[in-house]
Amino acid sequence: LAALHAEGPLAGLPVTRSDARVLIFNEWEERKKSEPWLRLDMSDKAIFRRYPHLR
């Protein structure tokens, strides 16, 4: 499970980098069924690119 911001401008976004990794992994797991070539990237760089508020 990932903790998400409940309200405000960040509502629905992950609270920590660990939470972001959970979301990225879950999405990758779903997408790899139809796109088996996808690589999993959970590096800090990938997290910041996707969720800049975690910098």
Score class of each variant (00 low, 15 high):
S34M: 15
W28L: 04
A11K: 14
H5M: 07
E27W: 11
R55M: 12
M42Q: 07
D19I: 03
R21C: 10
W37S: 13
P9D: 11
E29N: 15
P36M: 03
L23C: 07
L54A: 00
A3S: 12
H5G: 03
L40M: 06
P14F: 03
A3R: 07
E27A: 05
A3Q: 14
V22L: 14
L10E: 04
A3M: 12
K33G: 07
A3D: 11
I24A: 03
A2M: 07
K45I: 11
H5R: 02
A3Y: 14
E7G: 12
I24Y: 03
F25N: 05
K45M: 14
E27H: 09
D44K: 08
L13I: 04
G12F: 06
E35Q: 10
L40P: 08
G8M: 05
K33T: 11
R31F: 07
L54E: 00
R17E: 12
L4F: 07
H5L: 04
G8K: 10
P36Q: 08
L38R: 10
R50Y: 08
S34K: 14
M42V: 14
Y51M: 00
E7C: 11
R17V: 12
F48V: 12
R49E: 15
G8H: 05
L10M: 11
D44I: 15
K33Y: 10
A6Y: 09
P14K: 01
R17Y: 14
W37I: 06
E35W: 08
S18R: 15
P14Q: 00
A3K: 12
N26M: 13
A20T: 01
L40N: 02
K32F: 10
W37D: 10
R50G: 02
F48W: 09
L1A: 15
A6Q: 12
R17H: 09
S18K: 13
R50L: 09
S43V: 02
E7H: 13
F25P: 00
L4P: 03
L13G: 03
I24C: 07
R39D: 06
L1K: 14
E7D: 14
E7K: 10
H5D: 04
D44M: 15
L54D: 00
Y51Q: 00
E30A: 13
R39K: 12
E35Y: 15
K45C: 11
A46L: 09
V15M: 10
L40K: 02
K45G: 11
P9Y: 11
T16M: 04
R50C: 03
E29P: 02
L1T: 12
A20N: 00
L10V: 07
V22C: 09
S34E: 10
T16P: 00
L10R: 04
P9R: 06
K32Q: 11
K32V: 15
H53Y: 09
L40Y: 03
W37H: 10
T16W: 03
L4Y: 09
K33Q: 15
T16Q: 07
P36V: 05
D41P: 01
R17M: 15
D41V: 05
L10A: 05
S43M: 02
Y51I: 00
P9I: 08
N26W: 10
D44P: 14
M42G: 03
L23H: 05
F25V: 06
V22E: 08
D44E: 11
L40Q: 01
E30H: 12
E29W: 15
N26L: 14
M42P: 02
D19W: 04
L54P: 00
P9H: 10
A6V: 14
G8N: 05
L40D: 01
A46V: 10
K32C: 10
L38F: 14
N26E: 09
R49M: 13
E29D: 08
M42D: 10
E7M: 11
F48Q: 06
D19E: 08
A2R: 03
V22F: 13
L1Y: 14
T16H: 07
E30T: 11
L23S: 03
E29H: 14
V15K: 11
R50V: 13
L38A: 14
H53K: 00
L4Q: 05
H53P: 00
G12H: 04
E35H: 12
Y51K: 00
R50W: 03
E35S: 08
P52D: 03
R39P: 14
A6N: 13
A20D: 01
L10G: 02
R55Y: 10
K33S: 10
R17C: 12
R31C: 08
K33L: 13
A6C: 11
E30K: 13
R55E: 09
N26K: 15
N26H: 14
W28E: 01
L38H: 08
E30M: 12
R55K: 14
S18T: 09
E7L: 14
L23M: 10
F25Y: 15
A11S: 11
E27I: 05
D44V: 08
P14T: 00
F48A: 06
M42I: 11
L4T: 09
R21G: 07
R31Y: 04
P36W: 06
V15Y: 07
I47S: 00
S34G: 14
L54V: 01
H53I: 01
E29S: 15
F48E: 07
I47W: 00
P14H: 01
H5T: 06
S43C: 05
E30W: 07
D41Q: 05
E29G: 09
